[in-house]
Computed example of a mutant assay.
Amino acid sequence: MNERVKRGSIRAAAVAAALGAAVSVSVAGADSASATVSAWSDCPANTACGFADAGGGGIHIEAGGSQCLVLFNTNPRFSDLISSAWNRTGSAMVMYNWTTVWEPVKTVNPGEQWSVGWWDPANDMIDMICVGGARP
């Protein structure tokens, strides 16, 4: 990974912390090989969830507040893994792919559930999730 990207991600996290941003990050089932499979219903209110499998299945990651989660920094296991998402926040959830810049891949509107199909180029290419109006 590009050192500049790492420094920028660390700097962004420090700025968010300094500004007192309300940030919540949690990973369900990510640390246990025997973790149960998630379902849409495992996504709490007021959060945006990214799931490893289509249809809200597999392990999932949750984001709340106003933040961007750079997945290869915050939880590398989820980088290029997300295949479905449910946005239970009041603002758009924007998912990005890293090439040499952050490229928007998919916007999931408030209340929307998104799941890939075999034809969807967004499958397993998400490297960052932004919620609460945050942008890279």
Rank of each mutant, 00 (worst) to 15 (best):
residue 1 M to P: 01
residue 1 M to Q: 09
residue 1 M to D: 04
residue 2 N to Q: 09
residue 3 E to F: 12
residue 3 E to C: 07
residue 6 K to P: 08
residue 9 S to Q: 11
residue 11 R to Q: 14
residue 14 A to L: 09
residue 17 A to M: 15
residue 18 A to P: 04
residue 20 G to P: 11
residue 21 A to W: 03
residue 21 A to H: 08
residue 21 A to N: 08
residue 25 V to S: 07
residue 26 S to G: 15
residue 29 G to V: 10
residue 30 A to K: 08
residue 31 D to L: 10
residue 32 S to C: 09
residue 33 A to L: 03
residue 35 A to G: 12
residue 35 A to S: 12
residue 41 S to D: 15
residue 41 S to P: 14
residue 41 S to V: 13
residue 50 G to K: 01
residue 50 G to Y: 07
residue 52 A to M: 04
residue 55 G to D: 15
residue 57 G to H: 07
residue 58 G to M: 01
residue 60 H to Q: 14
residue 62 E to Y: 10
residue 63 A to K: 04
residue 63 A to T: 09
residue 67 Q to D: 13
residue 67 Q to H: 06
residue 68 C to E: 09
residue 69 L to F: 00
residue 73 N to I: 09
residue 77 R to P: 04
residue 79 S to C: 09
residue 79 S to F: 04
residue 80 D to K: 05
residue 81 L to F: 03
residue 84 S to F: 06
residue 84 S to I: 07
residue 85 A to I: 02
residue 85 A to Q: 01
residue 86 W to K: 06
residue 86 W to T: 04
residue 86 W to M: 04
residue 86 W to R: 03
residue 87 N to T: 05
residue 89 T to Y: 10
residue 90 G to P: 01
residue 92 A to N: 15
residue 92 A to P: 07
residue 93 M to Q: 02
residue 93 M to I: 02
residue 97 N to C: 07
residue 97 N to W: 00
residue 98 W to G: 00
residue 98 W to Q: 07
residue 99 T to G: 11
residue 104 P to A: 07
residue 105 V to E: 01
residue 107 T to K: 01
residue 107 T to P: 05
residue 108 V to P: 01
residue 111 G to A: 06
residue 114 W to P: 00
residue 115 S to P: 09
residue 116 V to L: 09
residue 117 G to P: 07
residue 117 G to W: 09
residue 118 W to G: 13
residue 120 D to K: 01
residue 121 P to A: 08
residue 123 N to C: 02
residue 123 N to W: 03
residue 126 I to F: 02
residue 131 V to F: 02
residue 133 G to N: 02
residue 134 A to Q: 13
residue 135 R to F: 03
residue 136 P to D: 12
